[in-house]
């Protein structure tokens, strides 16, 4: 049996780029896990758009206030992976 899929930093960065674009002043390939989304150039609408794509692609339901709760990529990854684990 295959291991549970895990939502990785790379997958998050790919979806951020696609759903919300990329601020030229930010290096998303750098160490971003604990930086605030606002410092990465993403506002709440950018996160909302990305989160709804994550929910769709990974068939997870995230908490209603996930955008407010996840202030950093690491916090969002944890919430998504918890959602994936719960799903199975």
């Amino acid at each position: 049996m295959a291991p549970f899929p895990t939502f990785t930093t790379k997958q998050l960065v790919d979806l951020l780029r696609e759903c919300a674009g990329e601020d030229e002043a930010v290096d998303l390939d750098g160490d971003i896990l604990d930086l605030a989304f606002t410092d990465l150039g993403y506002d709440s609408l950018a996160l909302f758009n990305t989160v709804s794509r994550i929910e769709r692609d990974y068939a997870v339901e995230l908490p209603e206030d996930v955008v407010g709760e996840a202030g950093t990529p690491r916090q969002l990854l944890d919430l998504v992976n918890a959602g994936i684990a719960e799903r199975v």
Binding site: R17, C19, A20, G21, D23, N49
Partner: peptide, 8 residues
Amino acid sequence: VPGRLLPQ
């Protein structure tokens, strides 16, 4: 156009 503005 800035990258952040392309998807929107």
